[in-house]
Simulated assay, not measured.
Amino acid sequence: MVRTPLTPWERARGERLGALLRRARGERSMIEVAAAAGVSAETLRKIETGRAPTPAFFTVAALAAVLGTSLDELAAACVPEDTGHDEQRALSA
Rank of each mutant, 00 (worst) to 15 (best):
M1A: 13
M1F: 02
M1N: 06
V2N: 13
R3T: 13
R3F: 03
P5K: 14
W9A: 13
W9P: 00
W9T: 04
E10H: 01
E10K: 01
R11D: 10
R11E: 07
R11K: 12
R11H: 14
A12P: 00
A12F: 02
R13W: 00
R13G: 12
R13C: 10
G14L: 10
G14H: 11
G14M: 08
G14N: 04
E15A: 09
R16V: 09
R16Q: 13
R16T: 14
L17F: 05
L17M: 15
G18C: 12
G18P: 02
A19V: 10
L20N: 15
L21I: 02
R22I: 02
R22P: 00
R22K: 15
R22G: 03
R23C: 02
R23E: 08
R25M: 07
R25V: 01
R25A: 07
R25S: 06
R25W: 03
G26F: 01
E27N: 09
E27D: 11
E27V: 03
R28V: 00
R28P: 00
R28W: 08
S29Y: 13
S29W: 14
S29L: 06
S29C: 05
M30C: 01
E32N: 06
A34Q: 13
A34K: 11
A35T: 10
A35R: 07
A35D: 15
A35W: 08
A35S: 06
A36F: 00
A36T: 05
A36C: 01
A36V: 00
A36W: 00
A37F: 03
G38A: 06
G38I: 00
A41N: 14
E42S: 09
E42V: 11
E42M: 15
T43V: 12
L44W: 12
K46M: 07
I47A: 12
I47H: 15
I47P: 13
T49H: 12
T49S: 10
T49W: 07
G50I: 12
G50H: 12
G50K: 05
G50M: 14
A52R: 14
A52F: 08
P53D: 04
P53L: 08
P53K: 02
T54S: 10
F57H: 01
F57Y: 14
F57T: 08
F58Y: 15
T59N: 02
V60Q: 03
A62N: 05
A62H: 02
A62S: 06
A62K: 01
L63H: 12
A64C: 09
A64Y: 02
A64L: 04
A65N: 10
V66K: 07
L67I: 02
G68E: 10
G68L: 09
T69R: 07
T69I: 08
T69L: 06
S70L: 00
S70G: 06
D72N: 05
D72A: 04
D72W: 01
L74N: 06
L74R: 13
A75K: 04
A77V: 04
A77T: 04
C78E: 14
C78K: 07
C78V: 05
C78L: 03
V79D: 06
P80H: 03
T83P: 01
G84K: 00
H85N: 08
H85M: 14
D86R: 09
Q88S: 03
R89Y: 14
R89G: 11
A90I: 10
A90S: 07
L91K: 11
L91D: 10
L91S: 08
S92E: 13
S92C: 03
